[in-house]
């Protein structure tokens, strides 16, 4: 474990980066798309709230409903195209299988316990612990569901199968809301963790 950082310093060019360039690019483009989608989405939510609260206008994007929709339906292309690119490269290079699996419930429990005791190892940034694996896979699936429910809201007539799978138009609104809430929850924890281990943030920016 001690040898690796020294080696990396000696021959930085020879050692592959912690995160390849394509991953860093798709990560930050995704982050941008998520911020635009969530902030404009909150504005759209405010036009007809599902629950007894509204998002403060100051943290929304678009100025009014039409502006928010313009943002939302522009940023969706970034989210989807970038997301498909991420999933394709991740699958084709085998990185998805290497980085995220195996994923055992026992490993998850052990790593979660270690995390709460502040003893989770971050010695090898090339290896995700089980909690990370589960969290990242969760947010990938959550984003897929978020996009699919959004597709039902946008085109409920044109995608009948998807609409029925979502339980109809009105249920799709709730699916869209709760998958958004889960995504925001993930982002909060994710950013907090990155700040707790600042090195991981540098890895995602510089690759090393």
């Amino acid at each position: 474990m001690n040898a690796q950082p020294v080696m990396a310093n000696k021959a930085a060019g020879d050692v592959p980066p912690v995160h390849p360039l394509w991953l860093r690019l798709t990560h930050w483009l995704n982050a941008l798309a998520v911020v635009l989608m969530v902030m404009s989405g909150w504005r759209i939510y405010n036009a007809s709230p599902l629950f007894d609260f509204r998002f403060p206008d100051e943290i929304t994007l678009g100025g009014w409903l039409a502006g928010a929709i313009l943002w939302h339906f522009a940023a969706m292309w970034l989210l989807v195209v970038n997301g498909l690119l991420y999933l394709s490269i991740n699958t084709a290079t085998g990185r998805l299988g290497r980085r995220f699996f195996p994923l055992s419930p026992r490993g998850f429990a052990a790593d979660l316990k270690a995390a709460f005791h502040g003893r989770l190892s971050h010695a090898d940034p090339r290896r995700y612990n089980t909690v990370q694996r589960a969290a990242y896979l969760f947010v990938i699936l959550d984003l897929v569901l978020l996009v699919l429910s959004g597709l039902v809201l946008w085109k409920s007539v044109q995608f009948p199968l998807l609409r029925e799978l979502m339980g109809g138009y009105e249920t799709a609104r709730y699916v869209h809301f709760f998958t958004m809430a889960a995504l925001v929850g993930f982002v909060v924890i994710h950013v907090a963790m990155a700040l707790l281990v600042p090195r991981s943030l540098l890895h995602m920016i510089r690759g090393r």
Binding site: L61, G62, G63, L65, A66, W71
Partner: peptide, 30 residues
Amino acid sequence: GPEQPDRRRFLRGSLALGALPLLGGCSISD
């Protein structure tokens, strides 16, 4: 109408600027 208070703001904005500031209220999108 869709979000009445905002629509008023939009109308006010368009009178002031003589343009079509659709996205009034957010500095980036102005």
